[in-house]
């Protein structure tokens, strides 16, 4: 007798939990033959709102963790990705990749996660400065996370786009809400499961599925989002996002480079989402303080 397979329900990932969209809406994901692969949550403005709240409440805890601890958690994500490699490969194949391309994508995703894990406790050293001011003060500048980042991830890749977007954000101590690829959403849920089993605190990463056309205005107009990252090429959406960003002076980054390019392994993606904080303190040393010329 043939066994009936259990089908996976694809939900969204908010605050370390897997709810369905509050809207009850879904869209059907089909393969090239037109067969329905899964019903995907068509997330709403309110889902985004909930995800943002989760990201905000996780923010200070995540950013105040030891950088070494963040590095370990990112590495743990890579370990679990490696362990579930076959599952991701088959999901990518189902979504239209060749098996060779699927393997390349998954391996790149794992390696990229490892790469950013390594930066967690190093980028601060590379991008900080001790500034030799001309008065009796000790002055130093360090990067600090911008806060909550809303991301519209790459459309063309199911897994690598997510990892590429998320890794530098959380390596830098930010938290995020990510809209996954609309046409290739399957890995989003599986990747969420990876995140959820790798000691990453709930709310640090929130992943929702749905339409960028519907959600980009909400992402960009939310007053408690500090920055937005956009990986697609819809000019109208970019313009709207940048316009809405002005409501609360959001930082907006539009990344157009091919997601498969090795240049995406690059600490400047971390520092884009950092604020430089400069601290002054007096030094009891007057004699050398003259700024004469």
């Amino acid at each position: 007798m043939e066994r009936l397979e259990i089908q996976k329900t694809y939900k969204i990932f908010i605050g370390g939990q897997f709810p369905r969209t509050e809207s009850g809406r879904y869209y059907s994901l089909k393969n090239k033959k037109g067969e329905v692969l899964a019903n995907i949550c068509q997330s709403s403005r309110k889902d985004f709102r909930n995800a943002e709240v989760a990201a905000r409440s996780a923010q200070s805890g995540w950013s105040s963790r030891a950088a070494f601890n963040r590095a370990q958690i990112l590495y743990r994500v890579a370990e679990i990705l490696e362990g579930r490699k076959d599952q991701f490969i088959s999901e990518l194949i189902v979504q239209g990749s060749s098996s060779a391309a699927a393997r390349v994508e998954v391996e790149m995703a794992i390696d990229r996660m490892v790469y950013y894990s390594g930066w967690c406790d190093k980028f601060q050293q590379v991008f900080s400065a001790v500034n030799p001011v001309a008065s009796s003060h000790f002055n130093f500048s360090v990067p600090e996370p911008t806060g909550v980042v809303a991301v519209i991830a790459d459309e063309k890749s199911s897994l690598l786009g997510l990892v590429t977007a998320i890794a530098p954000i959380i390596a830098g101590g930010n938290t995020c809400v990510v809209l996954a690829s609309e046409s290739k959403p399957l890995c989003a849920v599986t990747f969420s499961e990876v995140l959820n089993t790798s000691d990453l605190p709930g709310g640090v990463v929130n992943i929702i599925t749905g339409s960028a056309q519907e959600l980009h205005t909400h992402f960009s107009s939310h007053m408690d989002v500090n920055a937005m990252v956009y990986y697609r090429d819809d000019k109208a959406q970019i313009k709207t996002i940048k316009e809405n960003a002005a409501l609360n002076v959001k930082r907006v980054f539009v990344y157009k480079e091919n997601i498969f390019s090795e240049d995406h392994a690059n600490p400047y993606y971390i520092t884009d989402l950092q604020e430089i904080k400069t601290t002054w303190h007096p030094i009891e040393n007057i004699g050398s303080a003259k700024a004469g010329y």
């Binding site: 400065a129 500034n131 030799p132 001011v133 500048s141 400069t278 601290t279 002054w280 303190h281 007096p282």
Partner: peptide, 19 residues
């Protein structure tokens, strides 16, 4: 805050980032 003055205030210097 982008600039924090500890036990001082309103200090500026060309080498010190501000924003």
């Amino acid at each position: 805050a982008g600039v924090v003055w500890a036990n001082t205030y309103n200090k500026f210097d060309p080498v010190s980032p501000f924003g």
